[in-house]
């Protein structure tokens, strides 16, 4: 009986002690983690718009650039039943240069989220960047690498989607990419298909939202 009591008491004390330690560490760093998340999202929006922030910049610097170069248009686009604000990127003179909005869809393992930027004339993808993905590192995870994202910088958009409903295509190795295409990732067909679907779905919704608001 006495032994049982000691065991239970010991477990309770140990659990309380370690919960206290982890909660303490979390509380001490909570603000920093929150700001890191915000800064990461801001950085992704800026990257999609092609606005460079110094590598290794802290959150204050990123927040400052974001405040100067990005504003909310007040319009929204609905993608997969989520309403996302349409943001506007400003050039160095403060003139509007393009739109950016959040895109989302299913990846191979988990949801993929990022931002897509489109020119004011809606004829170019200005850029693409991701802030949430859990694709296989080294394979599908390559979508976050520079070579992949660079393909979408200033990629021309057709006036109308193709017969398959797609604006842009990810083509496998060995196929010559057309004017509106980018290279898929070898060995990561699932992720490549998912990204192609996410971009085209978002583009369709965005074009529709822009047509309706005009």
């Amino acid at each position: 009986m006495k032994e049982n009591f000691y065991t239970v008491l010991y477990m309770v004390l140990i659990a309380a002690g370690f919960t206290g330690v982890t909660s303490g560490v979390h509380l001490l760093n909570r603000e920093r983690i929150e700001r890191n998340r915000e800064a990461m999202r801001a950085r992704v929006v800026l990257r999609a718009l092609g606005i460079e922030v110094r590598r290794g910049a802290g959150f204050e610097e990123i927040e400052q650039v974001y405040r100067q170069r990005v504003q909310d248009t007040g319009r929204t686009v609905t993608i997969r039943e989520e309403e996302h604000p349409i943001l506007e990127g400003l050039d160095e003179q403060g003139e509007p240069m393009g739109y950016a909005f959040e895109i989302v869809g299913r990846g191979v393992w988990d949801a993929i989220r990022g931002y897509l930027a489109i020119s004011l004339e809606l004829d170019l993808i200005l850029g693409l960047a991701w802030h949430e993905q859990n694709e296989t590192p080294g394979l599908g995870g390559e979508i976050t690498r520079e070579w992949f994202m660079a393909q979408f910088r200033d990629l021309p958009l057709p006036d109308e989607p193709g017969p398959d409903g797609r604006y842009v295509r990810l083509v496998p190795a060995g196929v010559e990419p057309g004017e509106h295409d980018a290279d898929a990732i070898t060995g990561a067909t699932g992720t490549s298909d998912a990204v192609q679907e996410i971009i085209n779905h978002a583009l369709g919704r965005f074009m529709q939202a822009m047509a309706e608001s005009d």
Partner: peptide
Amino acid sequence: TLIIAAYVIVVKILLDAYLP
């Protein structure tokens, strides 16, 4: 297990805070 889990959570928090 509890001890190990606690330290792993600490590592995760510190990574999120300092090496996001």
